[in-house]
Each structure stands twice: as structure tokens, then as C-alpha cells.
Design a protein around this nucleic acid. Structure first.
Lengths: 171, 171
DNA sequence: ATGATCCTACCTATCCAAAGGTAGAGAGAG
DNA sequence: CTCTCTCTACCTTTGGATAGGTAGGATCAT
């Protein structure tokens, strides 16, 4: 088995959260996705909260690592746009933490904490790479992230991936 | 009673959706908010789908009407920013259709249809008011809406309303 | 080496609460 | 009397979570 069961659960859960949100899937859904019983999902992740918090942690680490493969400066900015674009092209999924950020209040604290960490890490990893037109770099990075999250959201609402490109580097 | 029961249900439901999403509340929650029993909520709105679709329709009409109170041009742009800012200041709620757009796939079709209509109407009502720096006005409007939705989302994720202002008209 | 023991991963079978929704009765207003 | 609204009292399905058990592999002492 190239992938452990826990990894397959996390993968299935990520897809479901990014499509339907924290309250949009059940352990039974995941069990069916992976081909085991829901009780077995609990063997790997005791609670839904634990599962999603872990998912957000992994997502953040993976995302930041992918960003930092690109050298600072314009290439890194291009890379982050591309990561978000992939999100949209891949079945119109939201950014995981965009989705969790939207649901926000009402999610378990460990999840909101990880969500916040994602955005802080993302802004930090981008700030040094931003050109500045009179605004400080942190603000410029925050603005870019807002635009990207908004672009993903609009593309989903329109059910049209080209909306993303129109927003991000349109005419 | 200055407000009908149906109106009070819609109001309570809107607050709940904007805080927790379509799957984040129940008819029993609404019943408690309004002070009636859940069966009575069904008397006014047969299904959850019908309730939320109606809610989105009303929201769109109200939002567009509020926008068009402001004359076209810069005042209208200022007004839309202000409407979104209110959203954040008012307990960090998402824009209703931003939330529904995020949840997107998995929601009933009548709801996604109304969500799409909101964004189309909003972009149309803004396009004429946008200054253009080499981009066409529709694209400029789309970009503004993306930035605003993203700003609301980030403010929520950070649990800090000032993030909204930093994104939208920060230094 | 071999049996006793333990751990991991999965199972079956439930539990209980919550959710969307329904049926039918009662009470007040026109 | 009838229409509107609300209630009580359910039903069915789903959801998160638990209890207890089984098969297989590793570990260890004798």
C-alpha cells in the first residue's frame, strides 16, 4: 500500500470539506470514500474536530512548502496564484482554509486556530516578495490573498473557472 | 406586531446562515430564535431549500436597492464598500451570498441559482461606476467584488475586523 | 521454537441526539 | 364557519461516537 489508510482518510476528507464545508460531510461519507466502516475512521481520528484540525495543519505545511519552492520575488507571487488556480480548476474546490474561514464561528476552536495560522503563514511567506506601490509589504500580501480567495469564491458561485483568471490577471 | 412571523424567521435565518452556513443551523434553532416551535416554521416555509432560496432573493433585492440609492460613479463604489464593511462589523458575519457561494456545490439548485444572480446583479450595478485603468468596467467591478468578499473572509478568519479595512483601503 | 501476550486495524452492532419533515388538533379573528 | 397560525406528538434518517470482538502480525521469555 503506497498510502496509509489515515492518509487516504485525510485526502477524502479534504476533498469533501473543500467542496461542502465542515458541516457538509459525515464520517460515513468518508468511510464509503475509503472503503472501510465509519467506526474504523474513528480508529484513526477520534473526533471530527481532531480530523479537520489535523487536515488544516497538513494543508498549511504543504501549501507553504510549495510556495517556498519558488524563489522570493515575482516567481513566488506567480506560484501562489497558480496554487489557487489549481484549486479552482480541480473541480471548483475552495481553498481549504478559505472554506473553514468562511464557516468560522461555530467551528471547533482548534480548527479556527489552524485556519488563522494558515493565513498568517501565507502572508508572511508572501510579504517579502511583494512589490510595493506606497503600501507596506504586509498589506500588499494581505490584499493579494484577499483577491485570490475572493476570485475562487466568485468562480465557484458562477460555476465558471474562467472567472478566476478574469479577476486575477484579466484584461 | 411591526414585523410578521415570516419576516422574523427570515431575519433569524439570515443571521444564522451568515454566521455558520447552510448546514450550520436547523429549523429548531430558528424556532428558538423566534420563540415558536419548529413545526410552525414549516408552516411559513415548507422546506429549508425554499426558506434559503427566498432569503437569497430578498437579500439580493435589498442589497441592490441599497446600492442604487447612491448615484453612479465614485459614491456608488464607496457605498458598496460600506455595505460590506457593515457586514464585518456586525458580529463578523459573511456576506450571505459569499457564504452560499463558498458552500456552492451540495446546496440545492434553487439556492445556487439565486447566489449566482446576486453576483451578476452586483457586478452589473457596479460596472458603470468603475473607473478603468486599461481594464474593461465589468472586469474592474468583478475584481472589486472579489476583493470585498476576500476581505470579509480574511477578517473573519483573523477574528479581527480591522483586517477588512487594511485590505480595502489600507495604507 | 513455541506458546503467551500485546498491538494494530478493522469489523458488527448499537446508542443517543439532532435533523428535516408530517399529521392533526386547538384557538382566535374576520 | 372558516382561515390562519400555532401547538403537541410523532416519524424517519442521519450523524458522531462507543462497546466489544476478531484476525494477523510482532515481541518476548522460557
Amino acid at each position: 500500500m503506497a498510502q496509509t489508510t489515515a492518509e487516504r482518510i485525510l485526502e477524502a476528507a479534504e476533498i469533501r470539506v473543500r467542496q461542502a464545508g465542515y458541516n457538509g460531510f459525515s464520517f460515513r461519507d468518508l468511510a464509503e470514500d475509503v472503503g472501510i466502516k465509519s467506526a474504523s475512521v474513528h480508529h484513526h481520528f477520534a473526533t471530527k474536530e481532531a480530523l479537520v484540525a489535523r487536515m488544516a495543519t497538513d494543508y498549511t505545511d504543504r501549501f507553504i512548502a510549495a510556495l517556498e519552492e519558488a524563489p522570493p520575488g515575482p516567481p513566488r507571487v506567480a506560484r501562489v496564484k497558480d496554487l489557487f488556480r489549481q484549486s479552482v480548476l480541480d473541480d471548483g474546490k475552495m481553498c481549504l482554509c478559505g472554506m473553514l474561514g468562511a464557516e468560522g464561528i461555530g467551528l471547533p476552536p482548534s480548527v479556527t486556530r489552524e485556519t488563522k495560522r494558515f493565513f498568517e503563514a501565507l502572508v508572511a511567506a508572501l510579504a517579502e516578495s511583494m512589490g510595493t506601490w506606497g503600501t507596506n509589504r504586509r498589506t500588499a500580501a494581505l490584499r493579494l490573498v484577499a483577491q485570490l480567495e475572493g476570485a475562487v469564491l466568485l468562480a465557484r458561485a458562477h460555476m465558471d473557472p474562467t472567472v478566476f483568471d478574469e479577476v486575477v490577471d484579466g484584461p
